[in-house]
Amino acid sequence: MEPGTTAPGTAGGDRLSDAVRHEVEAEHEGRPPRAGRPTDAVVGLAVVGLGVAALLGSLALGVGSAAAPGPGTWPFLVSVVLVALGLGLLALTGRTHDAERFTRASVLVLAGLGTMVAFVAVVATIGFEIPSTLLVFVWVRFLGGESWRTSIVTSLATVVAFYVVFVGLLAVPIPHMF
């Protein structure tokens, strides 16, 4: 053994062997590799940022008081919890072992979020039928990897079912074309 190295089974060697063993097990089981400190920090900062944005939005709605809560009361409380959880994630940076490294699957999550933002942007203008059909189709076909036929049938059947239940039976006031 060379000077300055730690033998397996000693305190320094155990930590390295645990990390290597975890990586080998993850690769063998088809799991993504474990995230490191940078990923933990990015996720913690993203949660804090989302919480702060929600906090500002809730304040703009008006929080009110304990005796007379305003429309921003619940969003305010949820955003405070979100900020606290994000700060907790930042405090645990590097200590968690179950977080996964960003992979191609992470990009799929961002694509799903982007399609939801597009859906929300147009649904009030043109109704829910066309945006909902396109949203379900994109999710099933491109994010879910289903066949063209399954994607078309699923997207149409989903929108028809939602229309019948929410517009027809429950008379929910949502923007619709028909």
Score class of each variant (00 low, 15 high):
1 M>T: 00
2 E>V: 01
4 G>D: 06
4 G>R: 04
7 A>R: 11
8 P>H: 02
12 G>Q: 10
17 S>L: 15
19 A>H: 06
19 A>P: 00
20 V>P: 01
22 H>R: 15
23 E>S: 15
27 E>G: 03
27 E>L: 15
28 H>T: 09
28 H>P: 03
30 G>V: 02
31 R>A: 15
34 R>Y: 06
38 P>T: 02
40 D>Q: 08
42 V>I: 13
46 A>F: 13
50 L>S: 11
52 V>S: 08
52 V>M: 13
54 A>W: 10
58 S>Y: 09
59 L>K: 09
59 L>G: 12
64 G>S: 14
65 S>R: 04
72 G>Q: 02
72 G>H: 04
72 G>R: 03
74 W>G: 03
75 P>V: 09
75 P>L: 13
76 F>E: 09
78 V>S: 11
80 V>N: 09
85 L>P: 00
87 L>D: 06
87 L>V: 08
89 L>V: 04
89 L>T: 00
92 L>T: 07
94 G>K: 10
94 G>W: 10
95 R>M: 05
96 T>Q: 13
99 A>V: 01
99 A>L: 14
101 R>G: 07
102 F>S: 02
102 F>P: 03
107 V>C: 06
110 L>W: 15
114 G>A: 14
116 M>E: 02
120 V>K: 01
120 V>N: 02
121 A>H: 05
122 V>S: 07
123 V>N: 04
130 I>V: 09
131 P>G: 08
135 L>W: 14
143 L>D: 09
145 G>C: 05
146 E>P: 02
151 S>P: 07
153 V>T: 03
154 T>Y: 05
154 T>F: 10
154 T>W: 07
156 L>I: 06
156 L>T: 01
158 T>Q: 09
162 F>A: 15
163 Y>N: 08
169 L>F: 11
174 I>G: 05
175 P>V: 01
176 H>M: 05
